[in-house]
Every structure is written in C-alpha cells, then in structure tokens.
Design a protein around this nucleic acid. Sequence first.
DNA 1: CTGCGTTATGTCTGGTGGGAAATATCGCAT
DNA 2: ATGCGATATTTCCCACCAGACATAACGCAG
Lengths: 122, 122
Amino acid sequence: MSHTPDPRFRIRLDYGDGVVLGPGKAELLERIAGTGSISAAGREMGMSYKRAWQLVEALNSMFRVPLVLSSRGGARGGGAALTEAGEQVLAAYRALENSAKEASSQPLATLRALRPEASARK
Amino acid sequence: MSHTPDPRFRIRLDYGDGVVLGPGKAELLERIAGTGSISAAGREMGMSYKRAWQLVEALNSMFRVPLVLSSRGGARGGGAALTEAGEQVLAAYRALENSAKEASSQPLATLRALRPEASARK
DNA sequence: CTGCGTTATGTCTGGTGGGAAATATCGCAT
DNA sequence: ATGCGATATTTCCCACCAGACATAACGCAG
C-alpha cells in the first residue's frame, strides 16, 4: 500500500501584474458553462458571489474579448454563459493540463521513488 | 509585434494538507545548493530568514528523508547543503518543468491565438 | 574565553484578502 | 404594478499571514 495516492497537478499561466490563469478560474468557467449562473457556480465551489464575480471580472479583462457574458433580469432573474472565446480558452487550458500531465509521468515516477509524503503531522 | 511575450509556467505538485512542492521551494533548494547557506539563499530571493527556514522545514518534513542538512557554529558560523535526496528532488522537479513546458507548446499556441492580455490597467 | 556568523525559535504587530451583509438594478411573469 | 431571482457594487470587519525584531545556542578561530 502506497500512501502517496497522486500528487495533484496545478498549472498556472502567469502573465505579469497578477494576471494569472489557473485551476480555480478554469473550474469556475466550467461551472458557469454548466449552471448558466455565476452565483450557482460560485456556490458549487464554496465561494462567495463576490469572489466569483471578481474572478469573472479578472477573466474578462485579461483577454481582448470577454470570456463570460452575463445578463440581468428576465424570467429567471438573469444568468451567465461562456462566449466562444471562453469555451476556447477553457478547452485550451484543459488540453494544456492533460498534455503536461502526460508528459510529466516519467519525472513523476522518479519523484515517487523518492518517497514523498511521510506523515506531515502537525 | 506581439504583446504577449511569454506566459510563465508555474507547476505545483499538491499532496493534500497544504503539502506543496512548487517553484519557490525549488528555487530555494537551488540557491541553498549554490550558496551553502539558508540565510544567503533567502536573501538572494528577497525573503526573510524566518520564511526561508520555514520553507526548508516544510521541505524536510514532506519527504521521508530530509532534503537539506544544516549545521550551526564552526568557522563560518554554520551552513546548509542539499542531501542526495535533495538534489534528486530538485532535478526531478526541473525535469518535470521542462517536459511539461515542452508538451504544452501546442495548446499554448492555441491560447496565444486567442490573444491573452489586453491592457489590465488598474 | 571572547567574538563572530549562522542556524533555530518565539513574540508582536500591521496589512490585506476575503466573507457577510446591505443595497441597487434589471427584465420578464403574473 | 408588483414580485422574483439573479447580477452588480459598496461598506464594514475580522482572521490570518508575513515581516520585523529579539533571543538563544552553536562551534571554530584567534
């Protein structure tokens, strides 16, 4: 029995100035696409609406075109959806994650041989 | 002239419980190997000795064997050096970075076509 | 046996990031 | 007209973190 189940990969693309695309924003995009709502997506991820909205704002301002379009009012109060660019960015990020993870299996095995994670009890 | 010079890759290996191996700890390991001193390495990276030491402590306790050995007193006051495991972990992380970056060039090109970074002025 | 530079560790404190909550606005349904 | 549910935005507040600072121990050089 190995105690080191699987180190999770976290890849962040860092353009300067705190402009970052990482797992959090990617998942948020995904859940917005799934729920059609910023607040619902945020709730699923256990974050406040404010934070979710701030992330969306960051996402929209870090590209030349917005990734999320939102609307107020209407039958169901409003909602949000990914633009085509949003879907493309999400897909590209996922593809990036996958190929990176695949390519890293060898060095990962080396690390695993070095026995990460002993106990880390506090 | 493209304004998007090069999104920097940041890869973190996340074992649960806040046990994380990322670019910061890797660079610290590298500089400890180079300087033979925790405080000197920390100074080079612009961090306090306390923080550098805390990172070393985290590194040492996240594997079964310590990655950094340190000694107090002596001619030059003391010092620190990487263990063999430390050098292996550092090498494995660097290899992982390299192969991941290489494998990601294609999705990265896709993203670049979507024109990241507009202005983001605050 | 004194001095020095480093490791090792604790305490205090200021800044900041994020949540909670309050408020406004929108557009359709009824 | 009125209500509803979601977006949008501000203000207040507090927990947490990181740095600054203090102190101790260490071991060799001289």
